[in-house]
Amino acid sequence: MDNLFLYVIAFLIFPGFLFTSSFGLIVSWIDRKVSALIQWRVGPPFFQPFYDLLKLWHKELIIPATAKKNGFILAPLLGISSVTLLATILGIINLNPEYQFIGDIIVILYLMIIPPLSIVWGGFTSGNPFGALGASREIKLMMGYELPFILAIVTVFFKVGSISLGEIIQYQHVHGVMLNLPSMIVAFIVSILCLQAKLAQVPFDISEAECEIMEGPFIEYSGPLLAVYKLMQSMLQVVFPWFLISIFWGGTSFQGWGILWAVLKYIFIITLVILIKNTNPRIRIDQAVKFFWGWVTLVALIAMILMFMGY
């Protein structure tokens, strides 16, 4: 029971909800600010994401009569809970690599599917054809990026010989970070591209393309539920790069200078994402799937072959 209480604390406060969400909001400010600077604008003030969220929280909630009401309300809550769980697992293992369990990455990979799934669910239950169209695009995109992403992650599994995140982090403590190896750099590039799609950033924001299908799955969401989705998306911006850092870049440590180093690694990845986002147009869904199943998978296979050759 004591243990459960600690887990609940972890879930709600430190690596879980409170930490990830506030960090995520800061990151979404960084995102908007850097984008604005690239576009020669000033950008929003620091607390803008918080203001947006608080405002949405106090707005009216509109539920269309044709929507499947329970699913419509449940979808964003399920999404944010799973992201919180993801953050909790990642955080606990990063804090204490010994605290692992075999095969936890599989759990993490599957938990990573739930946030897109909740978006899809929201789009489908809203009853709006644009929502359904956006959701169907999200499914297709998911089909696209899963293959190379799994290939890239599996490359790490086989280098380390384990599917436990803690062991991968410990391996990197002993043998140096994964990114020292050429094969891992290739795999890392692949996973950055998949990260772009997982975060639904341009050029892969196809599911919520605002000028085509008007934010797709989110079109019917308003007020608090929209706030939950926005929060979920900014939490994803923390969790997914954190996962990549953990398996490719030696994880994060929360002691002394480790914090700074961890933040720097994180900012590097997120800056890369923002740069890609701001220098590309959105591509079509079939182009995206072809891109992922074609070139990216090829590159991921090259990474795998390099890994088996020992590089």
């Binding site: 009216e60 909630l61 509109i62 269309p64 009569a65 644009f130 008007m214 007020g223």
Partner: peptide, 12 residues
Amino acid sequence: FKVREVETLFIG
């Protein structure tokens, strides 16, 4: 929350 059910969807 003020919850309001509306009849119509927003489809443009």
